[in-house]
């Protein structure tokens, strides 16, 4: 049976309602997310991505429409919002700016401690979370401020993981990191998603990253959800993406340029490896 974890039923949000600055941040969003999915959320600046994800953990209340989490309407009087916040973990942009404790271990244990868990449970969760993001024991007592950019960011993500969320939302988790740091974070998240079955929503500007990791892409434009499809199909619509100021990964353009040159090959490769194999298959016919 399919288990629907998050459902948006015709959700809209209006900022500064009733004033001259009234602005629809998201409009009529209908969306179903199953447990364990790995979803990419893309859209240019101001398209409504941030507003959308803040609805998912109740930070922003819908102006109209309903949001269900595990079958319960989150606007119900009896719904416990506190539970939602710990079950849907939201990692903001540049989360390392929110590190504040004197040691890495203390910083990560702040969340579970606030859940009112006993010390042993807090320590276990903290330890687990740090392991999950690949931070070794040698760094547990280090000051978070002595770490590299990529390490800091992983500690910040561990702080959310220690709450054992069912859904992990990451807003631009790789911005400002070097290419290897970027791959390290996303590989860790991907591994975590496979091993624990946590649902992941990845908000990013990098089409190469979504192409490599996610199964399904949501595309936002002017507050509307304009595309909701599996990754491969979304990038086949690269001309539509360009119209809304987005793009496909570079390999999509390579494959289409080859097709236009008369090479007979499939153009739906989304990673370098897939493109390589498809080109080799095709070129052999000419050799």
């Amino acid at each position: 049976m399919i288990f629907l974890q998050i459902v948006f039923d015709n959700v809209s949000h209006v900022y500064s309602s009733g004033t001259t600055f009234e602005q629809h941040a998201i409009r009529n969003i209908n969306l179903k997310i199953e447990q364990g999915e790995f979803i990419g959320l893309i859209g240019h600046t101001g398209s409504g991505k941030s507003t959308l994800i803040q609805h998912m953990n109740g930070l922003i209340k819908a102006s109209s429409g309903n949001i269900y989490f595990n079958g319960e309407n989150i606007n119900d009087k009896n719904f416990v919002m506190r539970n939602l916040r710990s079950k849907v973990g939201l990692v903001f942009q540049y989360p390392e700016h929110q590190l504040f404790e004197t040691t890495v271990f203390k910083d990560v244990s702040f969340g579970p401690k606030n859940l009112g868990l006993d010390k042993l449970e807090v320590d276990i969760r903290t330890y687990e979370a740090l392991k999950m993001v690949g931070i070794g024991e040698d760094l547990f007592d280090a000051s978070p401020f002595e770490l590299s950019g990529g390490q800091k960011r992983r500690v910040a993500i561990a702080g959310i993981l220690a709450m054992r969320p069912e859904v992990l939302i990451l807003d631009e988790p790789t911005a400002g990191l070097d290419p290897l740091g970027r791959d390290e974070i996303l590989n860790q998240v991907s591994k975590l998603q496979k091993e624990t079955g946590v649902t992941v929503v990845l908000v990013t500007h990098s089409m190469e990253d979504v192409a490599r990791y996610v199964d399904r892409i949501l595309v936002m434009n002017q507050g509307r959800l304009v595309i909701d499809q599996e990754t491969r199909k979304v990038f086949a619509r690269y001309k539509e993406l360009e119209e809304i100021h987005l793009a496909a990964p570079q390999v999509t353009y390579i494959m289409n340029a080859l097709r236009d040159k008369g090479f007979s090959l499939k153009t739906d490769a989304t990673t370098v490896e897939e493109a390589r194999d498809e080109i080799l298959k095709c070129i052999k016919r000419y050799m």
């Binding site: 290419p179 290897l180 570079q250 390999v251 370098v272 493109a275 080799l280």
Partner: peptide, 23 residues
């Protein structure tokens, strides 16, 4: 470049991969 934690554009990497395969 990869040793220095860096990368190349996708088209450069694809060309490099194809070269490695003998093209």
């Amino acid at each position: 470049l990869k040793r220095y934690r860096l990368d190349v554009p996708q088209v450069t990497e694809l060309a490099y991969e194809l070269r490695k395969k003998g093209l």
